[in-house]
Amino acid sequence: MDQLVEFFRNYFPKSFDGYPIKRIDLSVVDNKVNLDVSSNSINIFNIKLSGRSNIIMSLNDLKKSLIYLDLEVIEGSEASFIVYGKVSSDIYLGISSSLSKESKLSIEEKLYIEGKMVNIAKIIIPKGSVGSYAVLDQKIVSYGESLFINLPILIIKEPKCKAEHLSKKIRLDEDQLFYLKSKGMSDDGIKKVLERYFTTL
């Protein structure tokens, strides 16, 4: 719990006091896993990733929750983590990932934010993780009275590695909206199609 408070720092929500804590420790070896997240809870995942492994997490229909993932990518492994969905309530997402020698990690986030979200995605490449490669790709759109606080963090202590991240928050601009409307889409229709991009894998 202290680890969580330290990780989220000034963003740690006091309103989560007393919420049930769900802890899951996983070792994923050459496998694909769909994470099950509980609403109105604090979800803590400690995941070791080896071989070629993929983790998927959906935020669709999730009610107020805090999710913390500690991802460790084992030497020589290739891992990916995809989180996607529509955020309609208060969601706090913290990802702390670390790589090792010759390991690869790709984190993809596709988020449609209508509620409030704090997203801290940290990638750490410790010294000695020679030949490692990390990518973080975020695509975000927000609607209405939303609040989105995003901290995509890269900490690189090993020069012989490669790391990049791309974070995009978009909106449809006038030209794009005019195009879609001229093809017959209504405002609602446009919102629906946009939503579909973010709420499906």
Partner: peptide, 17 residues
Amino acid sequence: YPPDIEFLLTKDFLKEM
């Protein structure tokens, strides 16, 4: 010059039409 709209899948767009 139709604009590109990355965050709408073409198939979803056609379905909506």
